[in-house]
Amino acid sequence: MDLEQLKYPIGRFEAPASIPAEALKGYINDIRYLPSLVEIAIQTLDAPQLATPYRPDGWTITQVVHHLVDSHTNALTRFKLALTEDNPVIKPYDEAAWAELPDVANTPVNVSITLLHALHTRWVNLMDNLTDQQWTRTFVHPETKKTFELRTVAANYSWHGKHHLAHIERLKERNNWK
């Protein structure tokens, strides 16, 4: 299997040109159910399996789970900034550096699974109650200088969750972990 397939098992994110209401509902549901799907995917893994990178020079499953919480916490914050400020410039963060911090190495994955459930409950409750006008709110990413509409952000995080879930599931398949 080539490195690109290991890095992007479901392909790279491509922002849709338009996002109709039905597609948006699907993205919200992907976000809604991700914590349960990740929990199911890792529930039978032991410590050495959780410490296995999903690809050469990639993160371990433990790092992937903790990263989902870090990334999605930032996503919820960005949503709230976009909803309460006029096209704010968001704060980027160094994902790779965060994955190396002591809390990632020293915190059991079940703590992040619990956080992921709580975080996604809050996030989905917010998204389920946004008006069409609120979905058009935006923020600016300072590194890319691009403006992102919340509809597109929801699509991106729907993909992001499935992307990392696939990292875990494909590793389990390759190693024949039941």
Rank of each mutant, 00 (worst) to 15 (best):
His67Asn: 08
Pro142Ser: 09
Asn74Glu: 07
Leu68Met: 13
Asp86Met: 04
Ala21Phe: 13
Thr84Ile: 01
Ile113Ser: 00
Ile10Glu: 09
Pro88Glu: 12
Ser18Gln: 15
Asn129Met: 08
His164Phe: 00
Gln5Asn: 11
Ala154Arg: 03
Thr73Leu: 04
Pro142His: 05
Asn87Ala: 07
Ile42Leu: 03
Asn156Arg: 15
Pro16Leu: 11
Gly161Phe: 02
Leu116His: 08
Leu76Tyr: 12
Leu150Ile: 11
Ser71His: 03
Lys25Gly: 11
Thr144Gln: 10
Asn129Ala: 05
Arg12Met: 11
Asn110Leu: 14
Leu171Ile: 09
Thr131Pro: 00
Glu173Tyr: 07
Arg151Lys: 13
Ala118Cys: 06
Arg12Lys: 15
Tyr93Asn: 09
Glu169Met: 09
Leu83Phe: 12
Asn29Cys: 11
Tyr157Glu: 06
Leu45Asn: 06
Ser36Val: 04
Thr44Leu: 14
Ala17Val: 10
Lys172Gly: 02
Asn156Gln: 09
Asn156Thr: 09
Val64Asn: 00
Ile113Phe: 03
Pro56His: 06
Lys80Val: 07
Lys172Met: 10
Leu83Gly: 10
Glu100Thr: 05
Leu45Met: 14
Thr107Cys: 07
Lys25His: 08
Val38Gln: 00
Thr152Leu: 10
Leu165Asn: 05
Thr147Gly: 11
Pro35Tyr: 08
Asp128Thr: 12
Glu85Lys: 12
Phe139Ser: 01
Arg170Ser: 01
Lys80Leu: 13
Glu4Val: 09
Glu169Asn: 14
Glu14Gly: 00
Ala21Pro: 02
Asn175Lys: 14
Glu173Thr: 11
Arg174Cys: 00
Met1Ala: 12
Leu6Pro: 02
Val109Tyr: 08
Lys7Pro: 01
Glu14Asp: 10
Asn176Lys: 15
Leu115Met: 15
Pro142Thr: 07
Ala99Lys: 02
Phe148Thr: 10
Ser18Val: 15
